[in-house]
Nucleic acid binder design. Structure first.
Length: 319
RNA sequence: GCGGAGAUGGCGGAGUGGUCAAUCGCAACAGACUGUAAAUCUGUCGCCCUUCGGGCUUCGCAGGUUCAAAUCCUGCUCUCCGCA
């Protein structure tokens, strides 16, 4: 039983493509996980668990920003139903944010939640962020260097590949040689560290990843409906406001989807109708990209509804 | 009715005698993913065969010229613009 003497703490992840109903499901499940206790049987086996409920940590690269509410479909105070939510509205959209910062914040939140004997539920659709938490990916300690990046960006990709070859031929073989952004980052790391270290990961928590399985037609419908709703809620005004607050058009475009296409509309590059059409398509394409990402992780357990999810959670928590 | 322009793959749009199954963009589908991840990037994309490769049928319709046509000629159908 020594194997169990120091078990990893448990976290639950609920993920899925955009418009699959994550936020909603997360709250429902969190509510179901009100305080409780493991059964005597499992308590005796050494995996006793008392808990005071659950809290949610968002794993959404855009909901992290303040003021980006309608476009990201951020959950409202009311919808939260007394379940504390973390990592929403924590950074100003004008500032830079990245996965390393996210990971730090997320780990801090997890520790805090566990400390209070609650169960952390990671809820979101940003696959890379989720993976960073679940696998505890150790990123090389090389901050982004704007000056260097600007300089490198001017170079043709061939030149960058040559540089990388000299610095780290191993990484050259594995990077996507057609993706300039990736090659630049590789050069950036190799310039500081001499080479790009292999990515390490050693999971810190015992996690159960639940994916929301949803059929394509349904998902498409959801996307369409949700977009109409957002427009009615004042999506365009939100984007306007963000720009007035100093978020550059460039940045808004980089945020993608609603922020990108509404910006293009506000700047007169496309008509309102084009905005809606292109947006709908782009959101769908995004959803597919998410699905592609998640497909790869065989540990994810796909569920059709809340019930199935709860079943898995019960087994996972031994309750 | 006359004059002019044009009809190309799911769409837009190149190509104006041979290297064209046909540049390119979009959509679609598949995929990648080491500090921007809603971002960034890649592949496939007429049909058939097992990949290399090969075979077959395509550029409004029907004929014709030519060794060879999406590209030239004739007729037809349709669309758009100008004049009536």
């Amino acid at each position: 039983m020594s194997r169990l003497s120091n078990p990893k703490q448990k976290i639950i992840v609920i993920l899925g493509p955009t418009a699959s109903g994550k936020s909603d499901l997360c709250v429902k499940i969190a509510l179901r996980l009100g305080s409780g206790q493991t059964s005597k049987k499992s308590a005796r086996s050494g995996s006793a668990l008392d808990w005071n409920g659950a809290e949610i940590i968002s794993a959404d690269s855009r909901q992290i920003y303040k003021g980006m509410d309608i476009g990201t479909g951020k959950i409202t105070q009311k919808e939260m139903g007394d379940i504390p939510h973390h990592l929403l509205d924590v950074v100003n959209p004008k500032t830079k944010f990245d996965i390393v910062k996210y990971k730090k914040l997320a780990y801090r939140a997890i520790e805090d939640i566990l400390y209070h004997k609650k169960i952390p539920i990671i809820c979101g659709g940003t696959g890379f962020y989720i993976q960073a938490i679940v696998d505890n990916i150790i990123f090389p300690e090389v901050k982004s260097n704007n000056k260097l990046r600007k300089k490198l960006e001017k170079q043709p990709i061939e030149k960058l590949l040559q540089m990388l070859k000299k610095l780290d031929n191993e990484r050259l073989k594995t990077v996507d040689q057609k993706n300039k952004r990736r090659v630049i980052r590789a050069v950036e790391i190799a310039t500081i560290l001499g080479k790009v270290p292999k990515l390490e990961s050693n999971p810190k928590y015992d996690s159960l990843q639940i994916g929301i399985a949803i059929n394509r037609e349904k998902l498409k419908k959801n996307i369409k409906k949700r977009l109409e709703k957002r427009l009615k809620q004042g999506l365009i005004t939100e984007v306007k406001k963000l720009h007035q607050q100093g978020v550059s058009w460039r940045k808004l475009i980089e945020f993608g989807l609603e922020y990108k296409f509404v910006t293009l509309y506000l700047r007169g590059k496309i008509t309102k109708k084009q905005m809606t059409n292109q947006l709908e398509k782009s959101i769908w394409q995004y959803a597919k990209r998410q699905i592609t990402w998640f497909k790869r992780d065989k540990r994810i357990k796909w569920v059709a509804d809340q019930k199935e999810g709860e079943k898995l959670i019960k087994i996972f928590l031994k309750i």
